[in-house]
Design a protein around this nucleic acid. Sequence first.
RNA 1: GCGCCCGUAGCUCAGCUGGAUAGAGCGACUGGCUUCGAACCAGUAGGCCGGGGGUUCGAGUCCCUCCGGGCGCGCCA
Length: 653
Amino acid sequence: MFHFLEKRIAEAFAARIQALYGVNGALQGPVQTEQPKQASFGEIALPAAFQLARQLKKAPKAIAAELSNAVGTIEGVAGIEIAGNGYMNVRLDRGYYGYALLSEREAPGTRAEAEKVIIEHTNINPNKAAHIGHLRNAILGDTFVRMLRAIGRNVEVQNYIDNTGVQVADVVVAFEHLEQKSPAEVRALIQTTRFDYLCWDLYARMSNYYQDHPEALEWRKATLHAIEAGEGATAELAHLVSDAIVRTHLATMYRLNIEYDVLPRESEILHLQFWARAFELLKERKAIYFETEGKNKGCWVMPASAFREGSEDEDDSKVIVRSNGTVTYVGKDIAYQLWKFGLLGKDFYYRQWHTYPDKHEVWASTSDPQTGSPPFGRAARVYNVIDSRQSYLQDVVVAGLRALDYTAQADASVHFSYEMVALSPRTCVEMGIELSDEDKKRPYVEVSGRKGLGVKADDLIDKLIEKALEEVTSRHPDDPEDQRRRVATQIAVGALRYFMLKYTRNSVIAFDFAEALSFTGETGVYVQYAAIRARKILEKLKERGETLPDFRAELTRESMARQLADERLWQAVLMASKADAAIEQAVTSGEPAHVARYAFQLAQTFSTFYQDFPVVTETNPEKKTFLLWMTDYFRAQLEHTLGVLGIDVPEYM
RNA sequence: GCGCCCGUAGCUCAGCUGGAUAGAGCGACUGGCUUCGAACCAGUAGGCCGGGGGUUCGAGUCCCUCCGGGCGCGCCA
């Protein structure tokens, strides 16, 4: 609603500016609107007079006066005031606004656009358990998906599986050479053990082994070769390991309400010759060339000038095909990116991989011809959720598209980057990780999968659930265990998702157990609590034998105006009505943290309202009906916003 | 050496395309549960927005420069 009025006002002023000062007036595009610094100034501020002042060589204040007089009446606006030296502050008609909210349609943005947006996230190497860094990726990606869907976009969620890379190979090497396991024995381990945890340790052991026995790297080489060829016991083992680990990753993410649509796998990119096709295209369009001298002699390279401004140095060129004829990771990624836009002229086959309890299906790529799968790929826009350390490689991928003259697709390729999750020194100590004196002085310490240092995702979730369970049990000692555990799980997930979302993307998170486990202050738990308190009021009403009024029948524009004359109530309603505006703006800025912030502010506003206005005991009938409407409205907005954040509202807390 | 990111209250962080008196949470200190549950609310203290130049009506925000910290820059992924 707020968003809608804001647009209407901006348009009215834009039209007036054109009429008064001509089409070539100072302002191009929409007229800017802002939030006044002080609530007492009104609801919407327009700084347009400042921008016009320079070009018209006139005092801002005079322009503002002229404009606000000329603009006439705008539906829903009560008045315009000139403030400071040229601000135009708009006051909304409170009765109009409140009454409009009452009849507002649910979810106006459910139009499914034909244009598809692909979001690729998670992308964990399928060779060991997920850790907290992966959680940031998946939660950020999933929340962005929810934000886009909330404003009506058609989104496809991809989770790329690198099942043929070095990391998987190393675990396979460990099983074959260190553990002497046959595929059948590994199969048994998958059934009977916490397999992702087992591999976590095994991978760390293997990395150590390479350090002490460099000759063992020959094993890796042979294993990679066998995996790529796709035949024999080694290849079977690799598939066994990676498929089993992918299942554990999907299970971990499902605990956090994260689901996927399709799992494109590297093995199919190889077997279906995606790269061969991309290679032809790149050669044809001269995007890469064969180097005949220097350090990259014998390789196909992309010149540095393609992805790095001003760099002509051939030493900075990026190798795409090695001198032994094999393709690098970036090369495969270019092929994959082309496929996402439907530019490769090839497609995967798909098989059903898993069905979630809500009946949603995940499909995985396969090289065996299949029919009956939904269509995947062919997007108009692609977001790759990948941490900022890989920005160089992402630049090369986009440069590849550009060099092929796919300019529009290059522009529609977004590296949705974020900074890493490190560990606070205090948390390292708690976990028994030894720190050098140098590390102790740092604000954070980087985790290392190779060394097996890091916090496993499931361990963190378990820890959060146990802590939440203690809290729930202390409040509801007599409730059945499964019920308390269900509630505790929802609280834990809310806390974790909010924790990962409250930081903006380019801030490094120094993970600290004490902070992540906090259930007070700016947390997901606080927001959940507010939603529950709103529900409680409505439940209390029923307990008293009263029913929820028909608000649209009982509340009029006049009664809205009377009630909203109270500044505290007006500000609260205003805040609650800005959910869609907040989500829209967060999509534009690509910052899920903005939605999290808004959710917290909304909850804060409601908590204050809760404290100040007893609802069910209100004696004035009109006021009581109004307060009940407000409560119900806040409940809906809190639930809606939490839904976008992927956070459930527990039945109680 | 080159590129990207960060530096705002004791700590952890917001601050949307430049806009009015720079905001939260935690921690500290005061108060508030016989009331729709206090996982809460009200209040106090705490800031040369890393330093210095510049751009303009106006800079935490843009430009330059210096200082401090992080991450990239492989025929690894």
